[in-house]
Design a protein around this nucleic acid. Sequence first.
DNA 1: TGTCCTTACCTTACATCGTATGGTTACCTT
DNA 2: AAGGTAACCATACGATGTAAGGTAAGGACA
Lengths: 229, 229
Amino acid sequence: MAAKASRKPLSRQRVLAAAVGLADAQGIQALTMRRLAAELDVEAMSLYYHLRDKEALLDGVVETVIAEIVAAVGRLEANGGRTDWRTRLRQQFLTARDVMLRHPWAPVLLGSRRTIPADVYTYYDEIVGTLVAAGFSYHLAHRALHAFGSLPLGFAQELFSPASAGGSMEDDAAEADAAAMAETLPHLTAMMAAEIHDAADPTLGWCDGQVEFEFTLDLLLNGLERLHG
Amino acid sequence: MAAKASRKPLSRQRVLAAAVGLADAQGIQALTMRRLAAELDVEAMSLYYHLRDKEALLDGVVETVIAEIVAAVGRLEANGGRTDWRTRLRQQFLTARDVMLRHPWAPVLLGSRRTIPADVYTYYDEIVGTLVAAGFSYHLAHRALHAFGSLPLGFAQELFSPASAGGSMEDDAAEADAAAMAETLPHLTAMMAAEIHDAADPTLGWCDGQVEFEFTLDLLLNGLERLHG
DNA sequence: TGTCCTTACCTTACATCGTATGGTTACCTT
DNA sequence: AAGGTAACCATACGATGTAAGGTAAGGACA
């Protein structure tokens, strides 16, 4: 069959790349199995050989976008020499924003996903590492992470919704071997440990949505009050 | 027919209330026309007498949630006497958060909607009013609005995505008669006017996503730097 | 060389979804 | 009694995700 012979074979990567392209071009609602398959010159069911179902497709799509951010941020680190934590984080967040602006549908999608790609944790681990290296306590670094909210990734959902205000970050992480986690996410691990240890009421867990929310709120209100004078 | 006679007639309000309830109980993905109809002991097509289509349903659902926030905030105003802008906004945002925690699906839904309910503008108008009454310039109030991001409503999308970074707020507003808008949204109207007038490059429009983003970023970084000492 | 297995893709079919079209029923007005 | 209107329903269609099983191509091994 000429058509079949003349095209490159599918692969998870190729399918995901096409999916991102389709969403960019036609919007996320145009990302259906049949349309994606057509884009790849293939029948819909063929996609199921490379992806379990549509949920897996969407997971893969967010994963791809996050990878794009991580790569862009990594390029920053490689080029720019050492700088202070402020300009460093500033550049990182602006870079992330740049990427997200290229995929306007991504923040909402990311916010609506149930499971968070591993790369996100790596990314946040780096942020905590930057802060701690600059002399921040783990406690303040933790608060900072919440305060940043949607800035690092263009969406705030995970730190807001009940699914993880008291939850998903820890649960997801708990699935992995604690030792392995300490290796790949050293700063986050240390931060969690420090926070649990310091907590006045350890039964609350180490993330209390209400407390974080109020901290962020006051941080902003203080800043505005100062500008207002 | 006994079944028909024994039940209350439908209405837009009743349908929307049932929709919110269904989303609360079973998640937003369970909100289908058929399931919603079943919940109301009615056939799916009957819903179309009260709502044009599913988009209108979803618009109505966000509208309902926003109304719940506005009502709760209004109750605050009625009870508590006059207080300074800080505690006022603080209470408002915490109240909004309370409501959103009761509808965990709402922020994502709100963030993915194309049109923003009018109540949102009313709500933001009040916030600007509070700031200006406290002596803030329109310029700083504008920046503050962006900086608050997801705090007032639990989602940050509208201020982030290209759809409105340079757009939707103004476009939507432009639809309405300018005079009517000046009446119902006096502070927002004044703010827009002041900002357009002050803008160095008026061709940019009065919302420049990049500038707002960096302002928020620096506000947070400054605050953290100060806490870090 | 012939048999068989694995990989990659396809055909068919079905449940569920939103909704266009066109009834049908109950009630109100006159 | 006649007609009109408001509210609801039956049927049907196209789109979607996907289960179940089929098929073609290439290598493994005899």
